[in-house]
């Protein structure tokens, strides 16, 4: 009798455990299936970008066969671009402009964030709020008055105009991130340093910057992304090929020529997309943490 009930209990219990496990397994299968669909859709353009960049102009202009796959892959497009003076110019322009922009933006942002988060003075709250507010002012609202402004400064069609304007895109958000990170550093740390006779530059350099390094990395990546990918300002203010940066150069100069130069254009896009992709591959975690730090705090 007891044996029967025990057996019945066991047999009743067993399928239940099994079904729970099975259910979880099916959930995971469904999850991975759905994710695969999304990944495939999301990666269609990058995939096609790479595929086209490997095709010769002849293959593209023939317009025959499956466009998704390069029938006779070739690196000619890349070789052409790398040895092309104009394209080298675009890449170098993008590189030095973005480099300078990152340095300027980060310097401004770190100094301001240090002051706003630690040296609280009259109006510092107002400034912090104002910084956040200006982050919400998009460049497309300001490019026309700025056109007049840089025209008056004599900077139209001069790559330096970007060094002046790009920090406006990056600084508000970088400052916002840095204020968040600096505020999370315990006050006791800099008080202890003050008592030990450290001055403000020392506190900033030896305590705040090392401790807030993840935040600095996140903000730097943001500044880099913004500068490297910027399109509106260079399009509006630079019109000759020798002053152009990568984004505008590819869109404007390469398209103007041969209708079927798509192989070269896509190869240029691959080269242009490579630096951000490489940076994100290694530093994505910092960036995501920096971006969502405000979000998870509450």
């Amino acid at each position: 009798m007891t044996a029967v009930t025990a057996a019945a209990g066991a047999s009743a219990k067993k399928p239940k455990v099994g079904s729970l496990e099975r259910q979880r397994r099916w959930t995971m299968r469904g999850t991975y299936l759905a994710l695969c669909v999304f990944v495939v859709i999301f990666l269609i353009p990058p995939f096609y970008m790479i595929m086209t960049s490997l095709k010769s102009s002849a293959e593209i202009s023939a317009q025959k066969g499956n466009p998704w796959i390069a029938q006779s892959p070739t690196l000619d497009n890349f070789v052409y671009l790398i040895t092309n003076d104009q394209f080298q110019r675009y890449f170098l322009n993008s590189a030095w402009v973005t480099g300078l922009e990152v340095i300027i933006s980060m310097t401004i942002a770190i100094l301001a964030a240090f002051s706003l988060s630690r040296m609280g003075f009259k109006g510092s709250q107002v400034i912090s709020t104002g910084v956040f507010l200006t982050y919400l002012v998009p460049p497309s609202l300001l490019f026309i008055p700025l056109f007049q402004l840089v025209g008056n400064l004599g900077l139209i069609n001069n790559t330096w105009v970007l060094v002046l304007l790009f920090p406006t895109l990056a600084v508000p958000f970088c400052t916002w991130i840095m204020i968040g990170y600096f505020s999370s550093i315990p006050k006791e740390l800099d008080e202890a340093a003050l008592i030990d006779g450290a001055n403000y530059p020392q506190i900033l350099l030896k305590i705040f910057i090392p401790v807030a390094m993840p935040g600095i990395i996140a903000a730097t990546i943001f500044a880099f992304t913004v500068g490297w990918g910027a399109f509106l300002y260079p399009l509006a203010y630079l019109y000759s090929a020798d002053q152009a940066v990568l984004t505008v150069g590819i869109v404007r100069e390469l398209i103007r020529g041969d209708v079927f130069a798509w192989g070269t254009i896509m190869a240029a896009c691959v080269i242009g997309a490579a630096p951000p992709i490489i940076i994100y591959t290694f530093l994505m975690d910092y960036y995501v943490a920096g971006l969502t730090s405000g979000a998870t705090k509450g």
Binding site: F38, P45, Y48, M49, T247, C269, A273
Partner: peptide
């Protein structure tokens, strides 16, 4: 990482690819 790719590629360049698509 895979799902973040669209967001990482400079928008002007990926839009160019969409145009080609």
């Amino acid at each position: 990482g895979l799902l973040l790719v669209p967001w990482v590629i400079p928008l002007a360049l990926s839009t160019l690819t969409w145009w080609w698509l």
